[in-house]
């Protein structure tokens, strides 16, 4: 187990290193930040001044080495726009994004699994057909458009929910979170639903397909032959087997949700790191973009690791590290 985790961490470090080069070179190619940062009237000398202050006058490889050197001590440069450490800016906004993504994942999971299992077990019933039709719609609806329509209906027409922002937060374990107050829920509900919708549809389909497969297994028939109640057959024997792929996929999709939060945050002006990324891209704020990508890569790696461990907990046949 320990060996497995260490090996995974080493692999991840390699991925992060490769990514940092790609990202750095890639971002270097994006326009000239000076064109945006310096006012059009600025003289050539002023421009050089700014370039020197930001380290933009040195060659690419030198900039990269400086970047790597400072990255190792947790320093990712200062935002061109805010003049603050880029990593600090990202980390400051990370709780908001994580809160949104995790809330959406949990919503998708707890709504998707029961519906999917029902649709699988009673796959010929009218209810199951309706659920499946709904799920096709669910993953066909363009995510950002759903957000707009929710704003239009619940914020503009009905006035039930706020259209944007995060609202008041409560401090829990040093983190500012919305979900511990009614007002906070008011703000997080629409963006979370928007983000959860397509994942919910995915989970429904996966849970249904797995349920249909599992319910035909001999061990389910054997459980019935033992005279177990239908509740125990479904609730333990079938559900525990469905959980193996469903929980794994849900966990892996959390990474995709964090990435997709970029759009939801933009629509709902949710003050997370995704919105910061879009703002930084339009303003060519290179250090912030790089810091964002590094953070996301780290998160993806961490999620993968946790999901692998979770998988081995759910399925006893899987033992980490390969050796039995």
């Amino acid at each position: 187990m320990l060996v497995f985790i260490i090996r995974r961490l080493l692999q991840s470090a390699l991925v992060v290193a490769v990514m940092s080069v790609l990202v750095f070179v890639g971002i270097y190619l994006i326009g000239d930040p000076l064109a945006i940062l310096a006012s059009p009237e600025a003289s050539e000398i002023d421009r050089e001044e700014i370039a020197r202050a930001l380290g933009l006058d040195r060659p690419l490889w030198e900039q990269y080495m400086t970047f790597i050197g400072s990255a190792f001590v947790g320093e990712f440069g200062k935002s061109f726009v805010f003049g603050q450490p880029a990593m600090g800016l990202i980390l400051e906004r990370m709780p908001a994004t994580l809160e949104l993504a995790i809330t959406a994942t949990l919503m998708a999971f707890f709504i998707g699994v029961p519906l999917g299992v029902y649709a699988g077990l009673r796959h010929e019933s009218a209810g199951a057909q309706a659920i499946m039709a709904g799920s096709i719609l669910g993953f066909s609806l363009p995510n950002f458009w759903v957000g707009l329509m929710l704003i239009m209906i619940f914020a503009v027409q009905l006035g039930w929910m706020p259209a944007s922002g995060r609202g008041p937060t409560t401090e829990v374990f040093g983190l500012q979170l919305s979900i511990f107050s009614a007002k906070g829920w008011h703000h997080i509900l629409l963006p979370a639903i928007t983000l959860a919708l397509s994942k919910c549809a995915l989970i429904i389909r996966l849970a249904r397909a797995t349920a249909r497969e599992v319910m035909l297994m001999d061990y389910v028939k054997f459980a019935r032959a033992k005279g177990l109640s239908e509740r125990r057959v479904i609730g333990v024997h079938i559900l525990k087997n469905i959980m193996v792929p469903v929980a794994t996929v849900t966990g892996l999709e959390l990474g995709a949700l964090i990435a997709f939060a970029v759009i939801t945050e933009t629509i709902f002006s949710w003050p997370g790191m995704g919105k910061l990324l879009i703002d930084s891209i339009t303003q060519l704020d290179r250090p912030v973009i790089v810091a964002y990508l590094i953070v996301v890569v780290f998160m993806l790696v961490a999620i993968n690791l946790v999901v692998d461990i979770l998988y081995s907990v759910l399925d006893p046949r899987v033992r980490l590290g390969g050796a039995q």
Partner: peptide, 10 residues
């Protein structure tokens, strides 16, 4: 392993 939307965005 990298979300498509991010790659496309960058």
């Amino acid at each position: 392993s990298f979300p498509a939307i991010l790659v496309a965005l960058i």
